[in-house]
Structures are given as C-alpha cells and as structure tokens.
Design a protein around this nucleic acid. Sequence first.
DNA 1: GTGAAAGCGCTAACAT
DNA 2: ATGTTAGCGCTTTCAC
Lengths: 352, 352
Amino acid sequence: MQKISNKTATIFDVAEKAGVSRGTVDRVIYGRGRVSQQTRDKVHKAIEELDYSPNTNASKLASRKEYAFSCLIPEFRKGDYWEEMNNGFLAAARDYSSYNINLTIHHYDQQDVDSFIRESEAILSEKPAGVIMNTVFREEVTAFCKKLEGSGIPYAFVDNKIDELDYTLYYGVDPYKSGALGAWLLTNRTDPEEIALVRLLRDPSHKADPNRPRRHGFSDYIEDFFPKCKIHTVFIDPEKPGSILSTLESFFGQHPGIRHIAMTNSRVYLLGEYLRKHPSEGRIVIGFDDLDKNLACLKEGIIDALVTRHIPLQAYNALTTFADCIIRNRRPAHKNHFVHMDILTQMNLDNY
Amino acid sequence: MQKISNKTATIFDVAEKAGVSRGTVDRVIYGRGRVSQQTRDKVHKAIEELDYSPNTNASKLASRKEYAFSCLIPEFRKGDYWEEMNNGFLAAARDYSSYNINLTIHHYDQQDVDSFIRESEAILSEKPAGVIMNTVFREEVTAFCKKLEGSGIPYAFVDNKIDELDYTLYYGVDPYKSGALGAWLLTNRTDPEEIALVRLLRDPSHKADPNRPRRHGFSDYIEDFFPKCKIHTVFIDPEKPGSILSTLESFFGQHPGIRHIAMTNSRVYLLGEYLRKHPSEGRIVIGFDDLDKNLACLKEGIIDALVTRHIPLQAYNALTTFADCIIRNRRPAHKNHFVHMDILTQMNLDNY
DNA sequence: GTGAAAGCGCTAACAT
DNA sequence: ATGTTAGCGCTTTCAC
C-alpha cells in the first residue's frame, strides 16, 4: 500500500526558514530583482531542504503582468494543415488566459514573400513578449529573427526550424525521419519497383519548399533499401481541383506498373477522386498529417496509412511551453522538442 | 490577423449581473446547496450572457476540502506493466496535490483472489471519495462495486471494465481491437501459414485472465483473414526465466515452419534471449505495451512492432478526470474514454 | 537589497 | 435560501 498525501511547503515556509521575506524568495526564484549573494544562498538552501516547488495555481492566479505573444504562420483555408495548428494556438491562449496571455496571430501567404515581410514588420512594431513561427522562407525568417534578437524578443519555432538561429524552443517532428517512416510504411507490405511521388504544383516564383526535408527522408530511404526502384514525380495543381483527375489518369496511364503512391505534403486527400474511380488490388497509398479529409480517405480505405502527430496538440504544447519559459524567465528543459510520429491505419483510426 | 485576449468574467461579475452573492453563484454551479429555482435561473442566465467559466487556478487554490482516493491494482515488480500505471497515478496525485487530493494505492496479487478481497475490504473501511481499479476478478470486482454503490462511493475503471456496472468513468483501449491490430501488424508484411502465440503459464487455480479479449481480437482477425493459418500456443513460465529458452527451442524445433510470433500480454521481452540466439531472416515478432524492456527489444531489432498507448498517461488521465468529476460533482463528458492505440516500430521509436 | 501588504478569483464556513 | 468573509499561495507595488 502506498500513500500519497500533500503537505507541500509554501513560499512562506521557505521565507521563514531562510529568515527573509516572501518577496525576496520570489526574487531569488525568478531572478526578478537584485538580491545579495548571501541571501540568495540562504534561500536556495531552504528551498532544497524543504523540497519546495511553487504552487502553479497560486502563481497563475496572482500573476497580473500581461504577456503579448505574436504568432506568424501561413494563412489557410478550412480543413488545411495550418488551420489545425491555428486551433492549437487558440486553445493554448484560451487555457492560459488566466496567465494574462494574449495572442495575436499573423497570417502570411506562402506563395508571397512580401506578405511574410509585411507581417513580420507588424510584429516588430507590436513589441511582443515572444514570437512563435514556422520557417518557410529561410532567408527572410533569418533576417526577422536577427531583428527580434536585436530587440531582445525571444522566439520559438514550430514544425520546422533553422538550426543556426538562437531560438528558445522548437516543437515539431524530425521531418527527415518522418519521410523515412512514410517510405517504410509504403514499402512494408510489398517491395516497390516503381513509386509515384505526387507533388503540388506551386507558383514557380515562390521560394518556399517546406516539405523538402521530408521528401529527402523519403527518397533516401527508398534509395538505400530499394536502389533499383524508380521514383516518378507527378505534379497536380491544388488551385485547379478539376484538373487533378485527368492529370493523374494520364500519368498512371503512362506508368501502368506503379503500385506504390506517396504524397509527402499534407494533402493526400486530393488523390481521393482518382483512387475511388480507379480501384486497384495491391496498390498502396500513403500520406502525411491527420487532416479530417485525410482521415476520411483512410477510413474509406482508399489510402492505406498516414504518418502524423497531433497537430493542434503540437501547437498547444509549443505555445504553453514557450509561455512558461518567458513567464518564468527560464530556458526550456529541452530546446528541441521532437514530437513522436504516429502511424495511422484503418486498424487504429478510432479515438485518435 | 486574429487577436485573442482575455478579459474573462469572474464569479463576481456573474453575481452582480444576477443580483445575488458570489456564494450563491458557487452553489448553483456546483450544486453545493439549496438554491431556489428562480435564483438558479437568474444565475444560469448571467453565466450564459457573460460566457463565464470558472478560473480553475483560483478554484484549485481555494479548495481546501480533502479528497481521499483509493486505487486498487495488481502488485508488480520493477519494469512491469503495472508499475507504469502506478507511476501515472502517482504523477496525477502529485500534480493534483494542490486540489487536496491524496491517494492510497492498494496492491493485490493477480494469482490470489483473497488478496483482492482483503484489499477491497480495507478500501471500504477507508471511506474514500472515489475508487479507481481494474477488473481482473470479474465476480469479486462486481461484489466490491455493489458495496461501493451501497456506500455512495463512486468508482472508475482503468484498462478493462465490466459493462454491467454503474462505473463513473473508464479509461483504456478497446482490448479486442488492440488484439486485431496486433494481428494486422503481424501479418502485414507476409501472409502467415502458421503462427506461434506465446502465452504465460499461470497458476491454474487462479481465476483471472485479463488478456482474453485481446487474444480473441487477435485470433478472430487471423481466422477471418487467414482461415487456413494454424495458431500454435506455447506456454512459457515467467517464474522460471531459466526455462524459457529451452521451452522455446524445443517448441520451435518441432515447428520449423513458423515465421510469425506474437505475445498478447505485455511481456514480449521474455522472448529476447531466444530471438537473439536464433536470428532468422523474414521472421516477424509483435508484442504489446511500451515497457522499457520491450522498447529495448524493438530498438535492438529482435522484435518488429508493439501495439501500445502511453500507459502512465492513461493512468494519469483516468485519475485526474475522475477527480475532476468528483470535486466538481459532475458526470464526465464521456463515460467511456477509449484510448488511441499506437503502433511502434523501429522507425518511429524515438521520442515516444 | 529587502520587507510589507494588497490583491488575483474562488471556496467554504459562518451568519442571517 | 442566501449573504458575508477569511483565507488558499503567490506576485508585485510601494516603502524604506
């Protein structure tokens, strides 16, 4: 029999033991003011001896300082990947509202660098307590981050990152590994001779290619394990949904031997119409991310597996962890928080 | 651009708007006392109009009532399944200590019904605010729950449940489905002709067989999809680790054609020695639950996949959700909380 | 550099 | 049946 009860020490106990006031203990813990080294030591000693840890409820309740966070992510349409992210941020902001957090989410057009620059300038003028963003435009993100550093504003990355920068926190999967996992799933059942990698046609002028690491993880895996396998790339145009079916019919007409199909972006559901119209025994289709439309395809049985993680949860955790760091004036326990990748199939689709 | 800020209404605002005192609002919200229907309506109206929701930080902080929870689960050795569960409960109790929760965990011997009865009697005499347990001994659990109902003590199940009983909450996977998922994983790569199902030899007198539903899910799947496949059962004795290797060598010596091996309990790591000593190309081994030892086998590559979920998290969520219900005097949003089943392979083992 | 004290929003015991 | 009020443990402003 084990008993857990709960007479935890309070800040008052620490103050008493250290022979100082509660205010001083608070200063020591969070580095909120100048405290003499001597008092600092006494307080740390008392904390240790009492095994004190702050009551977060009281802390949140009493905290009256306002923290403004800015978020800079791609704009989206209903059901898109970034809508899920957005929802996660909103949920975090709501749940942390008792911490006096407010969040401003800025959206930019992934096809338009200028929109990114415009929004990032807007954020700078807001002087937020912290910024959280993804890193599609490498160069511009770097420039923005340097400015943030200049203003002493900490920033965090979600989904992808730029290793060279001094970010506070990263939350996301290892994209390269996720690509490899997708390749494994695709080839687990049967060895591939030819693979179709379906990609999204994007405006050739735009500079972002956020899925590159994942794609490389995918193709490296295939090259390593199936060196004789040929990967065919076919582009479909998400802006012209009506064209997708015929593009695919024409492509697969020319490559009748392909049984393995993958899409390394989040929109494998775009294949739905084609797959439904051309059922094929022994064909395997994999995709990424748990968009509702993707899950529906999985359920329907026209795609076989998804590599994903809880998107909103990732955003939620990123913001709350980042906020905790800033409020507590701390660095995070882990700077890089790699998120576990889930494998989703028809067999374990429920309750996700 | 979206802005989320946070001027949430307080209980004071609600009281003012409804023209009553804060105490009354509290009574209405949590049904803590007698309030006239008229005031009740006024308060509900004010809550609605202000979109009020209680500040949980303040709530937890102010709550001084003590809640004693009792937990009744199997005893365990280091690294066992139930140790993980136990850890989850402990973590929940710690995190909720500011809610004045204390937890008493009772352990019984899964081989010994009497120990279960003894511990359950002890719990009854403790008169806890709630009891959380698993349901290995169907009959005795039922009797115990009836007594709890008689004393007005709510109870929750983890891991498995007895549908007929009036439990407050259940947290766990659908065990039947988890078995089917295991079977799918086992047979995904190659069709099986013969399967070895390795089971634990247990004292024949003991009444518990907690893995039966999972085993049935497993075998039903195989029968459905591979009707010609023969499932061989072999028992190993976990109490005599030294005997396992020879048992398996003898068994597989007699069945040299077997390439598919499954264990539907949590201890697939017990096969480690045999698998390591007898490597075999094209053999597939699957197991259940993310015990550290199982994960090590997965990493080593001697087993191929695990079906699992975050065990401590499941316990954690079960206790915290249950406690919330009791403290708030509410029923849970979902009585049955089916947990998602994760597929773990070498490819997505990291960061789990 | 440090202490004192007024809240934060809520609960629960005590009044009425 | 409803109002009043003293805390819960912490933050933060204001004094010194």
